[in-house]
Simulated scan of single mutants.
Amino acid sequence: MKFNNTITNETRDVLYGMQINQELRSVYTFQLLNTVLQNHDALVTILNSSIQKPAYILLRTQFESLVKGMWLHLCAKDDEQIVKFLNNKDKIQSIYSCNSCGSESSQSRERSLQNRIKEIGTKRKDVHKCLSQFKSAYWQAFNAYTHAGLTFLDKGIDGERDMVSDQISECQAAELYSLSCKFTILAISEIGNCFDNDILYQLRHMCKDTFDPYLKDFNSSNVTAFQL
């Protein structure tokens, strides 16, 4: 099975030569959401190669960029919070209760990916549903791929030795591609906010009229374990 990057190619045709709004929010939202598109292109290249399993790691980073880009666009209150976010100083306050005396104390901690997804849900319930589904269904497994290293051993045909396998099943490859397409379409639907209203309108119509039907047709034609 061969995979294509039609979605990103058509999007770049629209964005080519366009001027990004110069507000801090727009500049950095674009960088994060454009990373989602770049990761999709890279994932397609990997899935079409003889070494496919690193695609799992790439999809994880694509998801993180999508969440952070969506959060920055939808939830960051002002430029001050955006600067804190860019400098990894965007923390939240958590309340802790003492088990023995019952007193409460406040402590700042890093805003987790799950915290960002919840905050996105207060602005866009449709996006929150998609991100939450992925987080609950895939995150633990993808973390295992990322942190345990890419040593994938399949049993040799003689049953006495192991051999390294870099390929994944056609079903798994289709699933990764489908998820990457979904994340990319979500990013495209919001990246237009970094430009003028005409670009936003054009990209959202492309998502609705072209990209969503394309993904629906792909999913109906291929066996995947998880449909978004």
Rank of each mutant, 00 (worst) to 15 (best):
K2L: 13
K2S: 13
N4L: 06
N5R: 13
N9A: 06
E10L: 02
R12P: 01
R12L: 00
R12K: 00
D13R: 06
D13K: 11
V14Q: 06
L15A: 02
N21R: 13
N21D: 04
E23T: 15
E23M: 00
S26P: 03
T29N: 10
F30R: 08
L32T: 02
L32V: 01
L32H: 03
V36C: 02
L37E: 07
Q38M: 11
L43I: 15
T45E: 14
L47R: 05
N48E: 08
N48H: 08
S50F: 10
Q52I: 02
K53F: 10
Y56E: 08
I57E: 02
L59C: 11
L59N: 12
R60T: 03
R60D: 03
E64M: 01
E64T: 03
S65D: 05
G69T: 07
M70A: 09
W71L: 00
L72I: 03
H73P: 04
L74I: 08
A76L: 08
K77Q: 14
D78H: 03
D79Q: 08
D79L: 06
Q81H: 13
Q81M: 10
V83C: 06
N87L: 12
N88K: 14
K89S: 15
D90K: 05
S94I: 10
S97H: 08
S97R: 13
N99R: 10
S100L: 09
C101H: 03
C101E: 12
G102Y: 05
G102A: 09
G102I: 07
S103W: 11
S105G: 05
S106N: 10
Q107W: 09
S112P: 01
R116F: 07
G121C: 02
G121N: 01
R124Q: 14
R124V: 09
R124L: 14
R124N: 15
D126I: 01
H128G: 01
H128W: 02
L131D: 03
S132H: 06
Y138D: 07
W139H: 13
W139Y: 15
Q140R: 04
F142T: 03
N143C: 13
Y145G: 00
T146S: 09
A148S: 14
A148W: 01
L150W: 04
T151A: 12
T151W: 11
T151F: 14
L153P: 05
L153N: 04
K155C: 09
G156E: 07
G159Y: 06
E160K: 12
R161K: 11
V164N: 04
V164S: 07
V164T: 04
D166R: 05
E170V: 11
Q172N: 09
A174L: 02
Y177I: 09
C181E: 12
A187P: 12
E190V: 11
G192W: 11
D196V: 06
N197G: 07
N197R: 04
D198C: 10
I199K: 09
I199V: 15
Q202E: 14
L203C: 10
L203Q: 09
R204H: 11
R204P: 12
T210H: 04
F211V: 00
F211Y: 15
D212Y: 03
L215C: 12
L215T: 08
S220V: 05
S220W: 06
N222R: 14
A225G: 02
